[in-house]
């Protein structure tokens, strides 16, 4: 019964993603603190925060509608569903038949749409500016993301993630120079999607730097915990995507305990290294003026365009 075994492993992959996601946030915060010569909180602090928020009461504005109450759940369910399609340490996900890379983008879009609505719903000014900024950034990010996906999909023959990652783990990067351009574009997009520094700043609640924080400012208690958890799951999923598509070393292609264990260990090492790298990058640059952000996205679009040209010629 290898089929049911595969499904079990697929579910385990999702659970691993969900369990590890706050850890990545913790590692990034710790790295940032150390680069700023602070001790920083423990890397397990996001778990404690979440546990504490879960126990707290919730305050909901009486001006808000059902959208405000259901948004954390929509967020969590959309992003949790997307997590099923991401290969973590087994290269072919058993759920890959149902959805591909484009569905993941769509689910992210759904989650983001509801977050923006919730930001507008309470009609607080902060929610409004957060939503408007998020709309501006996401309308620019999505075409760039699609272009980058097209480069990868054309190279590896399909948008299905299992196909992409299986082909990637069997072939070398060398004959495909267009993937370098796709990787650059994807990296910029990931910084934007997770609201990392040139786009937004997670660490502060200043009105100038908030994008995502401004939209979820009204949430408290369990809803806040859920929203933060979904955000960090989204982040770890994007890290896993870029790590497994462009650096697929060590991912297991067969179901045996030793290769799966090796795959899990290399996966954790890869994404931790990536998280530390992003955190270093964040410490070395400043937040960009909001209207300079399209410049960076233009870099991503141009880079994917050149990748497409390199593929066809």
């Amino acid at each position: 019964m290898s089929n049911s075994l595969e499904i079990v492993i697929g579910v385990i992959q999702v659970l691993v993603l969900m369990a590890l996601s706050p850890l990545m946030t913790g590692i990034m915060r710790k790295t940032k603190a150390r680069t700023q010569k602070r001790m920083g909180a423990s890397i397990f602090q996001p778990y404690y925060d979440m546990a504490k928020l879960m126990r707290k009461d919730e305050v909901v504005s009486d001006q808000s509608s059902w959208i405000f109450r259901c948004t954390p759940w929509v967020n969590f369910v959309a992003i949790g569903t997307a997590a099923f399609f991401i290969p973590v340490f087994l290269s072919h996900s058993p759920f890959g038949l149902v959805g591909d890379l484009l569905l993941i983008v769509g689910l992210f879009g759904l989650a983001r749409f509801f977050t923006m609505l919730a930001g507008l719903d309470t009609s607080s000014t902060f929610g409004g500016i957060g939503s408007s900024r998020e709309m501006m950034i996401s309308t620019l990010l999505e075409p760039a993301l699609f272009l980058a996906i097209f480069v990868v999909a054309l190279t590896y023959g399909g948008t299905n993630l299992s196909t992409i990652i299986e082909t990637a783990s069997n072939s070398s990067l060398l004959p495909h120079p267009q993937l370098i351009f796709a990787a650059i574009a994807m990296f910029v997009i990931i910084l934007g999607e997770t609201g990392r520094l040139p786009f937004g700043n997670h660490a502060t609640h200043l009105e100038l730097t908030m994008v995502h924080e401004a939209m979820v400012l009204e949430y408290s208690g369990k809803s806040l915990a859920l929203i933060e958890w979904s955000q960090s799951i989204k982040q770890i999923m994007l890290f896993a995507l870029i790590a497994n598509i462009f650096v697929p070393w060590g991912i297991s292609s067969s179901i045996s305990v030793s290769t799966l264990g090796f795959g899990l260990v290399t996966f954790i090492i890869k994404i931790s290294a990536f998280a530390v790298f992003v955190a270093f990058l964040e410490s070395s640059i400043a937040k960009w003026r909001l209207f300079r952000v399209p410049d960076l996205i233009a870099v991503a679009i141009a880079s994917s365009l050149v990748g497409l040209v390199l593929y066809y010629l």
Partner: peptide
Amino acid sequence: RTSIIVSAFLVA
């Protein structure tokens, strides 16, 4: 940003 897009087309 315009010049980046233009340069992508120049490369093409």
